[in-house]
Design a protein around this nucleic acid. Structure first.
Lengths: 244, 244
DNA sequence: ATAGTTAGCGTATTTTTTACGCTAAGTTTG
DNA sequence: CAAACTTAGCGTAAAAAATACGCTAACTAT
């Protein structure tokens, strides 16, 4: 068994997009061996844990995600660190961490990641599923420790990254409609886009490939499906300018 | 005396711009109490140290910079974390850290910051000055531990941030010429810009204020001086678009 | 058959970017 | 003092991108 490092953890904000809303995957805090009314187990938290002493940080993050959610090989990006000496001050949260980790935890610095998953194509482990919940990003309840703050910062980082990198496709199914793509940008960046201008802009991109298929199961005119061609994107990418 | 945390450090890549080149401030490794030919003290490193147990991470970074370089109140941005379990494997570097910190250091995760300073207006502490060196960013020698890799990533982060945030001004004197600003963008982003188009673009920005002064001491036609008006910038800022 | 919804194509206008030509103001050199 | 040199600084023309709309077609539900 690898030893856990009681000073450093990873926490991960997992984003998903259901076609209309941005969601975050949260998990119920693990139950204690002995029930304790001061330490309820229905409070939610980010998937995260102490790192193991033999792993690099990214490896720890991948492992923790696998163990807690069943998700594997997903987009993961380190975006910040939270290390305020008082961040664990909520006494029942801290007690919970001490009991479950079986370590004399004092200060923990956590490396924060955000992750993007295809919400409909992901296969979370069934046995873990019951304890995980997709919650809308703007309806997050009070979480343990400073996890609310971590989500806020993750959202900032996601918005910023979405403006310059083609990461939106990580949140969409492999085959998606232009409407889905537009909704994604509208929801995450928070402003309406003109349907016709969006299609015009996006239609010129040679790394968005139209497929000989249409969506189905919708109660309106079915739209054409597209895929994102990563190779073409990186082959033809040119430097963006700068906006002082 | 505050206790040092032997598991977590901060390291800082300090960038400066002299009007023509991007530089990084490095320091000579501290001498050991007893000389040891295996552990030379003329090798360079990033300013950095273990954090103190009572400080938030940013505070640690500011303190360490003050102690090692005399720099105070400077632009500081956390951009990554380096925690590979083998990152301290160079045995003489590790031994040096153990002796100087007087702690049983094993694995250290380091929080990496980059910092932007006005190279001509900064007042490094004289007594520390002898052990610090401004080195051109593309001529960095082999440093201790993984500090070369940290600088590479800092450069990536700086370039990325420079495209969307007004951080270039942190590297220029308070009063600067448009030529200096243009050189800054050319050097950091690595491509030539057309003099006339650059001036046209920049001339339309109402947060770049022309001062009733010209530069002097140059052996050509002196240029007008400008300043960056931060308030106006943030007041009039509007969201940029997205580039898929 | 009709109403309702989204897909999808177009046009006109404004703004931004790109690619240059050229003169003016200062310094250095012979 | 004149000529050569360097950078500052103003301009124009064309291309590309962003913005603001009008309109029809295709499909579903009632």
């Amino acid at each position: 068994m690898t030893r856990l490092n009681p000073h450093i953890s990873v926490d991960c904000v997992i984003f998903g997009f259901d076609g209309a809303n941005l969601k975050v995957l949260l998990i119920e805090r693990e139950k204690l061996p002995e029930e304790n009314p001061d330490i309820p187990s229905d409070i939610l938290k980010l998937p995260g844990n102490l790192i193991s002493d033999t792993e690099d940080l990214d490896e720890s993050a991948y492992r923790v995600l696998r163990e807690l959610t069943g998700l594997d090989k997903i987009f993961l990006k380190q975006f910040s660190v939270f290390g305020n000496p008082n961040r664990l001050d909520n006494s029942n949260d801290l007690e919970w961490l001490r009991v479950t980790s079986e370590l004399p935890v004092e200060r923990v610095v956590t490396i924060a990641y955000y992750s993007l998953v295809k919400i409909n194509e992901s296969n979370p482990n069934e046995s873990l599923l019951s304890r995980t919940k997709w919650i809308e990003a703007n309806e997050i309840p009070k979480l343990i420790f400073d996890h609310n703050q971590i989500i806020d910062k993750a959202l900032d980082a996601l918005r910023k990254e979405l403006r310059t990198e083609p990461i939106g496709f990580e949140l969409l199914p492999k085959k998606f409609t232009l409407r889905q793509l537009q909704n994604l940008y509208e929801v995450i960046l928070g402003n309406k886009l003109d349907n016709r201008n969006f299609r015009k802009k996006v239609g010129k991109l040679d790394y968005l490939v139209a497929l000989p298929e249409k969506e189905n199961g919708v109660n309106h005119k079915p739209a054409q499906l597209y895929k994102f061609d990563k190779k073409t994107f990186y082959k033809t990418r040119k430097d963006a300018g700068f906006v002082i």
